[in-house]
Amino acid sequence: MMTYLRRPHKQNTSHAILWWTVLVLAMIIVTLNFSSWTIPIGQRFAQVAWKLARPIRTATAAVTLPFTSKNALLSENAKLKRSIQLFTNEKNRIAVIEEENKVLRDVFSRSIDRSFVASYMLRNGGSAPYDVIVLDAGAREGIQTGDRVFSDSVTAIGVITRVFDTTSFVSLFSSPTVTTTCILGAEGVVLECVGQGSGNYEIKVPRDIDVAIGDAVFLPGIRHDILGMIDEIIDGGLAQSVKTLLFRAPVQVEKESILLIEAEHSQ
């Protein structure tokens, strides 16, 4: 009688290794997801790399500048367009403020001055579902959860959702499915807008409300912070009781490097 060595089951071994690896890693991920210490440690580590990368980015831009004359012109053009947009925002804001000035006189003891903390954008998550921005200002600078974030002194883009020692997370108003209460135009109709991603929003309004392209949409409040400008009106006709307004933020957040955080609690 002859005996043979049994051939090792390579496939079974590799399957076992695969599933054990998956099981262990899945457990690690679930643990990290529910641990409060993981994100602050990650932030502290990454902040070093982000801060080191800042001068490298600036130096690279300086070196490539002579070879990018066309790009420089395009960039200047974009900046000029941005300035025009800012002036338009200011104009719209002033018009609304003048309109409400009479109403506000009796409550004018409330200050409309405010202070901002300038912060550098360390990291942009990209698009949904990671529609988040990491800023280099945190609890040490007095930032708190719920503080509003602006791209300039009048354009609101998001709100602080998490604060660490030296960094903080911003959740954008325009993130998909995020609902924000807003005020439409000079008439002051209070509505809810829904984020569509990349600085775009959507509002559904009754058909009888007069709206024009270019009308501003504001955040509720005494200061009339601008959320965006109406870009498109989709009117379904008489059969529909509502019309859809599409509007977008006047700035592209991903192209910004400095953002302003309003210290709401310091008022």
Partner: peptide, 23 residues
């Protein structure tokens, strides 16, 4: 996992509140 930690997880979460979608 590192990306999830850096970005604080995704805005959406799946079962049991797990928002480490990329992981």
């Amino acid at each position: 996992v590192f990306t999830d930690i850096l970005l604080g997880g995704s805005n959406w979460s799946i079962f049991f509140g797990i928002n480490f979608l990329l992981s």
